[in-house]
């Protein structure tokens, strides 16, 4: 009987894994940048509590937070291309879908961080003659940022994990590289273990930092 020999992992495979890791980092960072930009804007508008607008913004935020990212990705990549002339590449679809997904969660965090600062802080600044932007920039942001950072870093960790789903629309990130390597080497146990460890190496330090930042906020205590 012929003995089957599993192909070995080569240094080229290691390079592929690194490349995949690089693409995972790229997609995640771009998505977080987009998400932060849109999310900041929407969260800021939400914090103003303008009656009708506030509800309208929820129409943007809530469906994104309450539907699966996989369905969002498939809709953006396969669905939109089918009915419009706009034909995004897997990379574009990945970055923008993940970015818009991030923005909904970021908006909630921005809104909550701004509202975490007591009303008296606005009043004190106003009564000293400061306008909205000066108050926001000089008084509110420096306080809100302490609430914002741990939650936002937590969100980044989460978005790093779910960025793996972009492999399902064919984008070659770390997960996709893993998939490709299992097809070539027939060593799924080993490959998926390596891929998991690589994600862990990226994610764990950031989530440790999030926890550290959170403990800092708690020791900072109540403002006042």
């Amino acid at each position: 009987m012929e003995q089957y020999i599993f192909p070995k992992l080569t240094s080229y495979d290691a390079l592929l894994l690194l490349k995949g890791m690089g693409m995972t980092i790229t997609v995640t960072l771009l998505a977080i940048a987009i998400g932060l930009a849109i999310g900041f804007f929407i969260g800021l508008l939400r914090s103003l509590k303008i009656p009708v607008l506030s509800k309208l913004l929820l129409v943007y935020i809530e469906p994104i937070r309450n539907s699966p990212l996989v369905a969002q990705l498939f809709f953006a990549y396969y669905g939109i291309a089918m009915v419009t002339d706009f034909n995004p590449s897997a990379f574009q679809a990945a970055v923008w879908t993940l970015g818009i997904n991030t923005s909904a969660f970021a908006a909630v965090i921005v809104d909550a961080s701004i509202r975490s600062v007591e009303k008296g802080q606005w009043e004190a600044a106003y009564s000293l003659g400061m306008n909205y932007w000066k108050t926001f920039r000089l008084v509110i942001v420096p306080q809100a940022i302490r609430v914002f950072i741990p939650s936002f870093v937590g969100l980044c960790v989460n978005q790093l994990q779910v960025s793996s789903l972009v492999s399902l629309i064919g984008f070659v990130d770390l997960t996709r590289v893993g998939y490709m390597l299992t097809l070539r080497t027939y060593r799924p146990f080993l490959i998926w273990s390596i891929v998991a460890v690589l994600y862990f190496a990226l994610s764990f330090p950031i989530s440790k930092f999030a926890r550290y930042a959170e403990s800092r906020v708690k020791s900072y205590g109540k403002i006042g």
Binding site: E118, G120, Q121, E123, A124, A125, S127, L128, G129, V139, Q143, I223, G224
Partner: peptide, 11 residues
């Protein structure tokens, strides 16, 4: 200029 019951200093 107003001074408040709860001070409202910028922490």
């Amino acid at each position: 200029s107003m001074v408040f019951q709860q001070f409202n200093l910028f922490p």
